[in-house]
């Protein structure tokens, strides 16, 4: 039994009196249902002000967050994917590339930027989940390879921000071999004694985790990011049991010894700056 009774039915507000609320002005946290303005959220670097859930950032947003005065030079933006195997499932790989390019305005799942972070010159490679699930194909491998060559040539440290569903199936063995390719280039970076900081963000899985993402001199992660070799669904299917809470999340990996630190986004730039400066002095 409710306290109030509706006496007239239907919506009585005139269309002309309707208040227009522009799309994207408000946000509602998926986890704690906190409601606030989009501006509030972006001021907090897309971390929920109430529960601290870290929302996904694009490569562009990471560049703006980390490079001083949001200034950076984009490198190797001329590398584009090629459907070498003419792969086709329900849709052709060509179509998928075209759709992803149109949706994101990107050429592939990774971007490379050069600039300064807390006044220290650095190359940042950032992955973009929007482009075919941030999957690693030949372009991702090649851009990382070129970024490493650039670091070696200019004696710069490297930061890679991983966010990926793993290797890109549509490039079959070529995408698998990008694991070897990126690892091979990292041996050269190591040989040149240049630091490599790996930042793992939600989600980082499969071939990306099992290659460059886990090979940082320092491995960092954003809070509560899913970090795995086999994704939770696959693990669950294998063991036919429910997974423990927090399984394969950043804090879990920190506890198991596979991360150096879990860093909240508000502190990310400062900590990266501190680490770079430890290597530099």
């Amino acid at each position: 039994m409710s306290w109030f009774k509706r006496i007239t039915s239907g919506i009585n507000t005139q269309t002309s009196q309707k208040k227009e609320v522009p799309d994207g002005l408000w946000f509602k946290c998926k986890k704690c249902r906190f409601t606030g303005t989009q501006k509030e959220l972006s001021d907090k670097l897309f971390v929920c002000p109430s529960c601290g859930t870290h929302y996904s950032l694009s490569a562009q947003q990471y560049f703006e967050l980390l490079f001083d005065e949001e200034k950076f030079e984009e490198l190797f933006n001329n590398i584009e994917p090629e459907d070498f195997l003419q792969f086709s499932d329900l849709r052709s790989y060509k179509t998928r590339i075209a759709e992803a390019t149109e949706k994101t305005g990107l050429k592939d799942a990774v971007r490379v930027g050069k600039g300064t972070l807390e006044k220290q010159a650095v190359v940042i490679v950032a992955m973009d989940f929007g482009f075919i699930g941030g999957s690693m194909g030949s372009v991702v491998g090649e851009k990382i390879a070129l970024a490493i060559d650039y670091c070696i040539k200019h004696k710069l440290p490297l930061i890679i921000i991983s966010k990926s569903g793993g290797a890109r199936m549509m490039e079959s063995a070529f995408s698998l071999m990008q694991m070897a390719k990126t690892a091979a280039k990292l041996t050269q970076l190591a040989e040149a004694q240049l630091p490599y900081i790996s930042l793992l963000t939600d989600p980082t899985t499969g071939g990306v985790t099992a290659s460059y993402a886990m090979l940082g001199d320092v491995n960092l992660a954003e809070p509560n990011a899913l970090i795995a070799f086999a994704g939770p669904r696959v693990v669950k299917e294998t063991i036919k049991k429910d997974l423990p809470p927090g399984f394969q999340r950043s804090e879990f990996l920190l506890e198991k010894g596979f991360l150096d630190r879990v860093v909240p986004r508000q502190k990310l730039k400062a900590e990266l700056g501190q680490i770079l400066s430890f290597f530099a002095h």
Partner: peptide, 12 residues
Amino acid sequence: IEHYASIGHFKT
């Protein structure tokens, strides 16, 4: 190392 570093197909 050079062998692995050379694997991949992309357009420039």
